[in-house]
């Protein structure tokens, strides 16, 4: 078999391609990218519609089932808003969502108040935290959506539990907001300030403003993290390839061992015959 067929080398090919993608990534002076991220039906698209003032016609389509399957962005005055597919909606979606998160400078992690964070959410958050490096604590923002779906008491109970989970599993408790998109929507449409205020959406907006996102620094940090990860993975792949090579050499040696033995004994018997022949000739003369 050729080296190209081996698992380790296939892995390495993928890794090398990722590495060149990263190196080719534009380090431009873009606007900060704010991405929403979270489980399916968490209310990500609805939240983005509100943040981008799409009150009458949805820019980011919403639905009570899986809807967003691709990344979709809206370029605002100061930010680019990025919608991602919901996690655990469809296996293919999860990778798209991961790609989206990789492009973001700020991630609004949206969790709807059906109990605390699920294990799957925690797992995704851990990955996200890793990729943000030192910016994780600041640039990952927790949004508890659909705050209207339960009583305030329950919502606050859930928030507290979720923050405890973050503290335990991520090592920090992110800034969190209890948001009701529908309250905000209705408040805006019917000019009811009470609802707008109770939606807490303005607080979230203000928080994003105060983050003072240093796009270059965040991206460098994130790229550095990806590079480190890639480097580790490449050397692991290298090691695996090396192991494979040793294994092959070993196999080769053992497979040829009998042949080599046979050749050796043939060689020996030939030499003996030759000696005999020579002797006879000498004696014959």
């Amino acid at each position: 078999m050729t080296a190209k067929d081996s698992m380790a080398s296939a892995d390495l090919d993928v890794l090398l391609k990722q590495a060149s993608d990263i190196l080719a990534r534009k380090q431009g002076q873009d606007k900060p990218v704010i991405a929403v991220w979270g489980m399916m039906n968490a209310g990500k698209s609805y939240l983005l519609n509100m943040l981008t003032h799409h009150y009458n016609a949805e820019y980011f389509p919403t639905k009570d089932t899986r809807e967003t399957a691709q990344l979709k962005q809206f370029e605002g005055e100061s930010y680019i808003f990025l919608d991602t597919p919901g996690l655990d909606a469809h296996d293919a979606d999860d990778q798209v969502a991961m790609d989206g998160a990789a492009k973001a400078d700020v991630v609004l992690f949206v969790h709807q108040p059906k109990g605390e964070l699920e294990k799957i959410e925690l797992d995704f958050l851990k990955q996200l935290k890793e990729s943000f490096g030192v910016y994780a604590e600041k640039n990952i923002v927790l949004v508890i959506s659909k705050a209207d779906a339960e009583s305030l008491e329950k919502i606050e109970q859930i928030e507290q539990k979720v923050l405890e989970q973050c503290h335990l599993h991520l090592g920090f408790a992110p800034e969190s907001f209890l948001i009701s998109g529908t309250r905000f929507h209705k408040g805006i449409q019917q000019h009811k300030d009470g609802l707008v205020k109770a939606s807490h959406l303005q607080e979230l907006k203000q928080h994003i403003e105060t983050l003072g996102i240093d796009v270059r620094a965040v991206r460098e940090e994130r790229i550095r993290h990806v590079q480190n990860t890639l480097l580790l993975e490449i050397s692991a792949a290298e090691e695996a390839l090396n192991d494979e090579k040793l294994q092959l050499e070993d196999n080769l040696y053992w497979n040829f061992a009998r042949f080599n033995d046979a050749m050796l004994s043939l060689d020996l018997s030939m030499t003996l015959k030759k000696v005999e022949y020579m002797n006879e000739r000498i004696l014959g003369e």
Binding site: M39, M40, N41, A42, D64, T65, R66, G86, D88, A89, H90, D91, D93, Q112, K114, I120, K146, A149
Partner: peptide
């Protein structure tokens, strides 16, 4: 399944 997130992959 909850109507809040029906038909999750899992």
């Amino acid at each position: 399944m909850n109507s809040a997130a029906p038909g999750r992959a899992s």
